[in-house]
Design a protein around this nucleic acid. Structure first.
Lengths: 166, 166
DNA sequence: GTGCAACTTCAAGCGCACTTGAAGTCAAGC
DNA sequence: GCTTGACTTCAAGTGCGCTTGAAGTTGCAC
């Protein structure tokens, strides 16, 4: 019936995906992957789950949470490999995200480069430590370097600045 | 006595750095920053702490943990702004790290680009889902896309693959 | 000298992404 | 049919980087 074994045990899926079985159970609990059960209650994964796991891991690389990965996954077909039409919007969204990350890193890199010759982190001169010009424009406790978490518009003041949650 | 106020309360440091006071106390507990105390026991921060906080936040952006940030900080002078000689090795190390991150993201981006036209994630063709060629070389459960956590050389087999902890 | 915001400590809690452990069951090779 | 390793569930634990809350104290403006 199976020319190419098409149901995987959790151990096999773990071996092939590089994840621990506990992680796979966790993913399943979150709804990222799914399984059928044997009469005895053991999980059996369709090969398509390899793809979904791969997708989730790639999503993590792009910086998505598992929750976000699940949302992206919901836009792809469950049963077959996505075709170009299905895949393109996801890939493009990810590429944009990657581009943003790269741009951010390049900015940081440039700033570091400037610092090498400038007596770095001196309060007045250095771009790396620069709370006042780039960022003070949008609220107290400006994030300057940390462009990812703009302060809420209602930011009341010190002592309540919610962390960026890195 | 103070032509330019040179001791900051925790609230002021919070406002200027963009961090919550709780975060600053946490940093101090970790030894990343330090303070003097008033007669009444309240913290007063030297302005140099602004620089240290900035450094820590930048380190986080580069992907360092607070612990690693502390180690890097230990290589810089406590009391004065680092000069070019002191700063250069740190900046260069960070730039290398940033370059690695950028390279990794660019690789991922290219792979995604290839996927747009290829019926992506099809088990045989796609670079994104590709456990066998690039990575199977270094152990079972190859990490392929996730180049950051190479499996231990002693990797025994399935069911015990320790998580990568992205 | 008083009122109030800002500060103090300490313990506990949170969110994410898992891992670990206990106690038990299943499946497959001999 | 027995053994053994792979599986099951469930609850609790981990590590990081903080936040929250309670209960009390300090410091500055008026």
């Amino acid at each position: 019936m199976s020319p190419l074994k098409d149901r995987l045990t959790i151990g096999e899926l773990a071996a092939r995906s590089g994840l621990a079985t506990s992680a796979l159970r966790y993913y399943e609990e979150l709804g990222l992957i799914s399984s059928e059960r044997t009469a005895g209650g053991q999980r059996r994964y369709h090969r398509a789950m390899l793809r979904r796991v791969a997708f989730v891991r790639a999503a993590q690389r792009v910086g998505l949470s598992l929750d976000e990965a699940g949302q992206a996954l919901a836009r792809l077909p469950v049963d077959h490999a996505p075709n170009a039409t299905e895949w393109a919007p996801v890939a493009r969204a990810w590429q944009r995200r990657i581009d943003e990350q790269i741009a951010e890193l390049q900015l940081l890199r440039r700033k570091l480069g400037g610092c090498v010759g400038c007596g770095c982190l001196s309060l007045k001169r250095c771009a790396l430590y620069n709370p006042d010009d780039t960022a003070a424009s949008h609220g107290p406790g400006a994030r300057w370097l940390l462009g990812d978490t703009p302060p809420e518009p209602s930011a009341p003041g010190p002592g309540s600045g919610s962390g960026s949650g890195s």
